[in-house]
């Protein structure tokens, strides 16, 4: 035992990773400039698109945690995005609560909802889980139109919301402020997710995907960990939904069709399955690629989008994140 409690000193140096070519401080500075640049350069519609891309990046990260890392296919995360958006809109418009309180509230409510749905649904697994979650995505827009809750949801009309003003007299217009808020929140969520995935529980999440039987032999309680992962995933996507209500200033059942869940799924695959940073590229793709497709062909943008998507999947099997990983490995060699 005593031999095992301390490692020989020669081992310490052996585990130091090779230093990457670019100093991290420079990377941080470059990143900060890239994130702030749109405030001065972009016109308001482009700024809105970038805000939306950041919101989608958060939602896609949420999906990636359950589907990419834990291997539980969800085709229904649009439902959590919708619930998050409605929680935000109702709190603002009907309850007159401050905008910042809608964000944690949406996350918590979607987390609880994810827990409740996940517990029974995750027992199905595989394709059955995919279909169950997809039926959730199909049902939610119709539930939102339901007469009995019209007083809260506004029925088919939806709910109107206004963007918050910048606090502390910051010299930013509401569009700019929301961009900054979204980017900061996204950064926070990404860092938390990275910490989680690097931890003991993050390893358990991946272990269950890789080999469930071995994971159980390691003492991992599969049902509990899967359910908690689903709840966390739903909470993150719900937070993105609440941000989207602020950005779009409007929620209605038609904004959250079942296709939204597929859009998030596409973003996850294009960005990189089981990659934290990949979600950023996923968000950018699902916001900008439809516009690019429309620019290429007014009459059949769907076809162009499909072709671009297929090309992406063929050329980048590990998504954008996989490509960057390969490039990074080549640079280090």
């Amino acid at each position: 035992m005593s031999e095992l409690s301390e490692a020989p000193p020669s081992l310490r140096s052996a585990t130091v990773r090779p230093a990457p070519g670019i100093p991290p401080a420079l990377l941080w500075a470059l990143g900060a400039v890239a994130l702030l640049l749109p405030l001065f350069m972009a016109e308001s519609f482009t700024l809105f698109q970038l805000t939306t891309a950041a919101i989608y990046a958060i939602a896609i990260l949420g999906l990636n945690i359950i589907t990419g890392y834990n291997g539980q296919i969800s085709l229904g995360h649009g439902a959590f995005y919708a619930v998050g958006a409605y929680v935000g809109a109702i709190m603002l418009d009907k309850l007159n609560l401050p905008y910042w309180s809608t964000l944690p509230a949406a996350a918590v409510i979607c987390g609880i909802l994810g827990w409740g749905i996940g517990r029974p649904a995750l027992r199905l697994g595989g394709l059955y889980l995919a279909l169950t979650t997809f039926s959730l995505a199909v049902a939610v827009p119709q539930i939102l139109k339901y007469r009995g809750i019209e007083e809260w949801t506004g029925g088919v009309q939806g709910v109107l919301v206004t963007k918050p003003d910048a606090p502390f007299g910051l010299p930013l217009n509401p569009d700019q402020y929301l961009y900054v808020l979204t980017v900061l929140l996204a950064l926070g969520v990404f860092i938390l997710a990275r910490n989680l995935m690097a931890s003991r529980l993050g390893r358990a999440i991946v272990a269950i995907r890789d080999h469930a039987l071995a994971a159980e032999a390691m003492g991992m309680n599969i049902a509990n960990i899967k359910t908690a992962t689903f709840a966390i995933s739903a909470a993150i996507t719900g937070l993105a939904g609440a941000l989207s209500a602020l950005a779009v200033e409007f929620v209605s059942p038609d904004s959250f069709q079942a296709s939204l869940s597929i859009t998030l799924f596409v973003g996850m695959v294009v960005g990189g399955v089981a990659s934290i940073f990949g979600a950023v590229f996923g968000g950018l793709f699902v916001v900008f690629m439809p516009n690019i497709a429309e620019g290429l062909s007014k009459s059949a943008p769907g076809v162009i989008y499909g072709i671009i998507l297929i090309a992406f999947l063929f050329l980048l099997p590990g998504g954008v994140a996989g490509l960057l990983r390969r490039l990074g490995a080549r640079l280090r060699r």
């Binding site: 003991r200 529980l201 390893r203 358990a204 991946v206 272990a207 995907r209 890789d210 080999h211 039987l213 071995a214 994971a215 032999a217 390691m218 003492g219 991992m220 089981a274």
Partner: peptide, 20 residues
């Protein structure tokens, strides 16, 4: 029955799950 996407070190660490 190893965790195939993980490195050797991560596999060994996964065995320590119960201690956390």
């Amino acid at each position: 029955a190893l965790f195939r996407s993980m490195t050797v070190r991560q596999n060994v660490l996964a065995g320590a799950h119960c201690q956390g």
